[in-house]
Amino acid sequence: MTPHETSVVDCDAYMDAIDQLIDGELAGPALEALENHLASCPLCVALVDRLFAISNDLHALPQLTCPDRVIEAVRTHHRSDRAPIAARMGYAAICLAAAAALALVLFPWQLTAPNQPEPSSSAQLAEARQAIAKLSATLAQSDTAVGQETLRRGLVEPLGRAFSVVGKTKLGKWSAAMGVLIDASSTPEQSKDS
């Protein structure tokens, strides 16, 4: 074989080197060996040219600009996306808070029975109602993470005080149990949020 002749077997041995050359990672003796091969193999030269051209053409493809309407749509969707609130709070906490609120609505006579009122009960009933309002407001803020402390201070403790004032110990226990469940249902992520 003359210096200007080569065979397919020789070419196969240089395929990896050609890929490395295109990647810009071929150096030293390996580069020298490939150059020697290319000096006698027009087909490998053509392949190298072709691969370089493709690499350059792809590199020349423009980076595109994302239309503003896409980002606006993302923001709009995110603002209207209220679902994560349930995940943040924990379904158990939401259900129990709703149950407590329902108890206040269903059994108002227990809180206002003629023989029961004590000097401070009406103030604490108002506190309990404020707590319900706080819960509603919190639920409406989808962007705000709700921690267990918020629920405890804003809802559980006021409800417990209100119920204990009117002597409904069962409801008082209910409220305490709700606090335990809120602790249990809060995830590490929620704790971080709070």
Partner: peptide
């Protein structure tokens, strides 16, 4: 590269693995 070979706007690349010996003239 193979898919682009059929493209009218791309210069064709010679078939590489032909089972024969190749004599070359121009060297790069």
């Amino acid at each position: 590269a193979q898919q682009l070979e059929a493209s009218p706007h791309c210069s064709p690349t010679p078939e590489h693995h032909t089972p024969k010996k190749i004599s070359t003239g121009g060297v790069r």
